[in-house]
Every structure is written in C-alpha cells, then in structure tokens.
C-alpha cells in the first residue's frame, strides 16, 4: 500500500563540486523542510525501499541519495564533511577510520549490539559474505569449486578454459576489494597462491561487484572471486534471457563476511533527521522484511558456522597505513600482474 507520492528526480549536476556520481536520486516531497544528503556505496536499487519507508515515517523530509565507489566516497566525504549527513559504505576499514578520526557523530540513543557498532558512531546493518560466483552454464561439465583450494586446482587443471575469464577486484581502486583482500591475506596463505594462479591466468580486474556480475552473465567471465554475495544472489535468482545461470559459493573453509556500516557526519546541520534515518535503518534491519530491506540483515552472532565476520576494531586501520598499503599493493601486483 505504498502511496506513490514520491518524486523521483533524475540525476542533475550538483553545484560546484566536480563529483561524478554513479547515481543520484532525490526521494520525497518537493520543498520539504529538510533534505537529507546520503552518500553511499550501495546501489540505489537496494536503498530505494528503505528510503521510501523512512519518508513514510517522516513525511516532511526529503532524501538525496548519492552513489559512488567506496574509495571515492571516502575521499569526497573527507574533503567536505559538512556537505553530507549520512555516510553508508561497505568498506569497513575506511568507515572505521572516519569514525576514529572524529568525522562521525556519537548517537548514544541507538540500541545496537556491541559487536555491530563502534563508539556509538559507526553502525553495522548488514552481514554480507564475499563469494566465488561461477557461471555454471559456461562451466559445463567441470565441477563447481567449493573452496579456494578447489578453485586453484580447477584453474591449474584447465588453464585454457579459464585464461582471461577470471575476475576479481582491483584492490588499488576498490576500497571493499582491498578490505576483502587484506582480510583474506590475514586469514590464510591460500590467498596469495590463489592470486598467483589468477595472475598466471591473466585475471581481469574490476572496480565493482556489479560489473563483475554483468560480465559473468554475459559469459565474458567464468569465475569471479570475492564478489559481494548479496549482489550476486539478487542476480542468480533471476535466470537471464540467454539462459546463463550463476552459482554463488561461499568458500567453505573461511568465508570472509563484511558488514555494511552507516555513520552520521559530525558536521551535519540536520543531526536529528540523520540520527532518525540511522535508527530507522537499524529498525528495518532487525525487522528483516525483504520488501523494505532488500539487503541481508545482520547475522545473529558474529561468529556462527565458521563465518569470519570482520570485526569493528581499530585494527581495521592496520592495512590503511601508508607503509603497509604500499607493501601489500606491491605484493599483490607482483602476484596478479604477471603478464605485464
């Protein structure tokens, strides 16, 4: 029974800031008393129902939803923190550093489990594992790999099939890709072997999960590593016209699980509305109704079924250290860019 009274405006260039948004939409009534500016790394399609529900509860607020990649989001927000009210990102490390550096307002009224928040200023609201996504139609008779080790063996056994048809994040561009890669590297040596094998197969590098899934569906990719499970599952459920089917595999030895987090800018002029939005977001999350919360809600406990959820801890800043990052990128490049 959602009244379609919301104006959805199409993207329009914003003032003087030379920011290229992947998407920009305004929800809510024209001439609303307040307009909440949300900067996010999550596709609008996932957030539209959440924002609509929020506006039903707070009808005199409009929401401007801006989408960009995690790394650009971090840079844009750091350069002008007063421009944005709410920051939503999947790059937990960048978000935690924002909170650590004092960019996040403390919201002490929000009741949220300890492991899903940091300093009452950074709030996790999804649990999303990094997945191996396989185009099963194109894979043919070959077995579907269930672990990283099986993936390595499969690629080694059929180098011709996989050459040029493997995709993963370019960790230099994507904040989330870098987070997944560093957490994988921290957990197991297998990661580096996998990167080396992928490098020897001329792996394709991507900025975002969405593009990897698009190329998987088109058959350009056979396997993509460390794709966001939530995006992939949404696609896997719909069988595309050309009959390509996707399988989403959570590596059974240690699936790396990320939590999407939200924070309210310390310098927001609309603290109450921004806090309301985060509270509302968390409430929708715990209700877990897919109709108005299309993202995977937080799993009950952080360490169930061998899932390793990246925890909100100052240690997340370790790999953001310039020296550490330099070393890691160099090692990663050495592994994955063998052809060049």
């Amino acid at each position: 029974m959602r009244i379609l009274a919301f104006l959805i405006l199409l993207a329009a260039p914003v003032g003087s800031i030379a920011q290229i948004w992947e998407d920009r939409q305004v929800f809510g009534p024209e001439g609303a008393a307040e307009t909440l500016r949300i900067i996010s790394s999550t596709d609008t399609s996932f957030f539209a129902p959440i924002i609509s529900d929020y506006i039903t509860t707070y009808p005199d607020t409009a929401v401007e939803y801006l989408v960009t990649s995690t790394a650009e989001l971090d840079a844009a927000f750091r350069s002008s923190p007063a421009q944005y009210d709410v920051v939503i990102s999947s790059a937990m490390d960048l978000q935690l550093k924002l909170a650590n550096d004092g960019f996040a307002a403390r919201l002490s009224d929000i009741d949220h489990p300890d492991w899903a928040q940091w300093r009452e200023s950074l709030f996790a609201f999804t649990s999303e594992p990094a997945a191996i996504v396989v185009n099963t139609s194109a894979l043919g008779a070959l077995p579907v790999p269930n672990t990283r080790q099986e993936l390595i063996e499969l690629m080694r056994a059929h180098p011709d099939t996989f050459a040029g048809k493997i995709g993963t994040y370019d960790v230099r561009q994507s904040g989330l890709g870098y987070l997944f890669a560093t957490q994988d590297a921290r957990a197991s040596e297998t990661f580096w072997r996998l990167m080396e094998v992928m490098g020897s197969m001329d792996a394709q590098l991507y900025c975002c999960s969405g593009e990897m899934i698009r190329d998987l569906r088109s058959g350009q990719l056979l396997v993509a590593y460390n794709v966001l499970g939530s995006y992939a599952l949404a696609q896997a459920q719909t069988v595309s016209d050309d009959g390509q089917t996707l399988a989403v595999i959570l590596p059974s030895e240690f699936p790396t699980t990320m939590m999407r987090t939200a924070l309210v800018s310390q310098q927001t002029a609309q603290l109450q509305s921004a806090a309301n939005f985060v509270t509302h977001l968390i409430a929708l999350q715990s209700a877990g109704d897919p109709a108005n919360f299309p993202l995977p809600p937080l799993s009950a406990a952080p360490e169930t079924a061998g899932q390793t959820t990246i925890s909100l801890n100052p240690a997340l800043m370790t790999y953001l250290d310039a020296l550490k990052r330099g070393t890691f990128i160099k090692e990663w490049e050495n592994a994955i860019l063998q052809g060049e």
Partner: peptide, 20 residues
C-alpha cells in the same frame, strides 16, 4: 619496511571503543 602485525592495533580495542 614496517610490516606491523594486525595485533598491534587490535590489542588496543577496548569496551569503550577508544580511538587509536
């Protein structure tokens, strides 16, 4: 090279989520 371990900062986690 200063490849400090993850534990260097994770040991500084506190119940009050102190900034580091």
């Amino acid at each position: 090279q200063l490849d400090f371990p993850y534990a260097s900062l994770s040991m500084l986690g506190t119940p009050a989520d102190d900034r580091v």
